[in-house]
Design a protein around this nucleic acid. Structure first.
Lengths: 341, 341
DNA sequence: GACGAGTTGCCAAACGTTTGGTTCACTTGC
DNA sequence: GCAAGTGAACCAAACGTTTGGCAACTCGTC
């Protein structure tokens, strides 16, 4: 049971320290600041000692009010139960912690109204900047932030215009294609991402481009669009297998989708990788620990998060960071093998 | 590319509205407050209209400084990439949003030093209260919060002392046991949770108690402790099958662990549910969408989050909420069946 | 011993709210 | 017609910082 009421002893404040030391509050403030230019070394020392002793901690609220900077950044995500976003968040959080910032997440649940509400919420909280990790193509969140003069960075997804940090999804798709082609697969199906999300579109395009360059045509009916979820993956795999039952390999635009596909394959008595090879995307921890470990394209999500936060911090410092596109890496596991002779 | 520099027009403030209306700032403040008791209806009307027009939004920082309440609650979790915690967070977030609060998450990565640092961070940010969802038994975060006079609620995990909100893990274990027993299973293995976490311990105990009451003894070697991850689940399942190869059913203390177990079973040529029935815990979305849909105990994670936040809000309002223990529900799917004749 | 430079610390204003106290005019009751 | 009561607005202080300006004091130098 916690005690109600305020803390027993009220927290030490700049003013209380000043009083105790017989100094002026401004002197104390400077003594504790990063650059105690105008105060003597001995004073600095005594102030710091007392501060330590009293457990003084700067009141960030007051500081924010005075300086106009809250040291809070917002992050918009569809939902954190999506492990992809949670992983990006982890990177963002790490980087912001190092910079003494704090990250305020807001779930938009991919709902336009809710997103607006959430943006307002963040703006109301005086965030210094925002990381947009939910921006489907055509989102208007960016406009609103522009209008409010709050800088932002797009993470993972990307908009034609705007500063964005992500992995090269075209290249990722290409890596997957080259892997399957080099194993000897020729009849390949693709479970593409959502049409609305730049990620899924580009992964599929990279894959198809690479196939085309190798002289392998993927018929249109072997490319099935799909939302990023396990159940959707299962459904899309069924559609794919109905339309192109002779495929020997499938590229799924996300690990979740691949997991769903595994279920469908299994239902139909097809085994991975003996009957059908499978490549996922993102290389989430689950990829490594699936019953049949999944070959997957690592999209370096933590680094994307870190990079996005780094770019935002740069922006906040008046810099002009440029967009960053990390190179994905293929991680080969047991789910891919040469096609059956 | 975002514009740097502050917003073009500086945000409307109480003072600017007052100036424009020729009113005193305090009058404007009251007019916009929830209970505009001391100001005439016509004034309220005109103030509200102008506020709307200028897009006024209260500066929460200033308000926090003045009132000493930040409308921010902190939440300590091991990590949000754990879907269980992410789901609880979702509940917390929903409830806090409804109450015009905002939730600041802090990952502790189950590291003692980091946890301390994070608690400090939250305290430094003047959070009004904290939800502890990472508290392993013996954590000292609670003490620190007590000392600082910041109220807190334990979610999911529970400490012998302290206000906590969770599901009844004893009952959950019991439900799983009753289900398997009623299907006719007699030789059952248990993959228990971590020893340090109250959840895992109680789930296993509830399960074993129910078995004992039914006259079925589970030998000690058929109970394997295990951390909550897929790979650990796979390992633990292997240990279990080595020690008790004749089990016809397995109860896993989490869905992730169950997923790991599926892999191990598969490797050994055992099929679910034909050879071995499997019950998971938490009923995450993945349970429903696994290749063989998993029977699982729904631990109502979103509601736990909501409940924890509700309790915290009550506490903040000076109430004396009591601990809450929700009843879990068994969701039967394809992974359980009567033992082979 | 006066002067300039440098050092050290104090002063005061400001950030945008909230809120108890005060003022002032107007009604009301007798 | 006057005291009391009431409704509506204003006033000012406070929350804890930060920061430009300023005063005082110390030194070295001529």
């Amino acid at each position: 049971m916690t005690l109600d009421g305020p803390g027993t002893r009220s927290r030490a404040t700049l003013t209380s320290l000043a009083a105790e030391l017989g100094l002026h509050v401004s002197t104390v403030s400077r003594a504790l600041s990063g650059d105690p230019g105008r105060v003597s070394a001995t004073t600095v020392e005594s102030v710091r000692r007392l501060a330590e002793q009293r457990g003084y901690r700067s009141n960030l609220t007051a500081r924010a009010l005075r300086t106009g900077r809250s040291s809070v950044v917002g992050m918009l995500v569809p939902r954190l139960t999506d492990e992809v976003l949670a992983t990006v968040y982890e990177g963002v959080d790490l980087a912001s912690m190092e910079a003494d910032y704090v990250t305020l997440v807001a779930n938009t649940l991919d709902d336009a109204d809710l997103r607006e509400q959430r943006v307002d919420l963040l703006l109301g909280r005086q965030v210094d900047g925002v990381i947009l990790a939910d921006s489907l193509l055509g989102s208007n969140a960016a406009d609103r932030l522009d209008k409010a003069g709050v800088p932002y960075v797009l993470a993972l997804r990307c908009l034609p215009t705007g500063l964005n940090v992500g992995t090269d999804d075209l290249l990722g798709g290409r890596l997957a294609a080259e892997h399957l082609l080099s194993l000897g697969h020729r009849r390949i199906g693709v479970i593409a991402g959502e049409d609305r999300a730049s990620t899924g579109v580009e992964r599929a395009r990279g894959f198809l481009d690479a196939c085309a360059e190798a002289g392998i045509a993927i018929p249109e009916h072997a490319v099935v669009p799909c939302r990023f979820s396990v159940t959707e993956g299962a459904r899309a795999a069924a559609v794919l297998l109905d339309a192109a039952p002779d495929v020997t390999a499938i590229f799924a635009a996300s690990d979740n989708v691949a997991l769903g596909a595994v279920g469908t394959l299994r239902e139909r008595g097809l085994s991975v990788p003996d009957d059908v090879s499978l490549v996922g995307y993102n290389n989430l921890p689950m990829a490594a620990s699936m019953p049949v470990p999944l070959t997957s394209v690592d999209s370096r999500l933590v680094e994307v998060g870190r990079g996005a936060m780094a770019a935002l911090l740069d922006l906040l410092d008046g810099g002009r960071p440029s967009s960053l596109r990390l190179a994905p890496e293929l991680v080969v596991r047991a789910s891919t093998a040469p096609p059956r002779a």
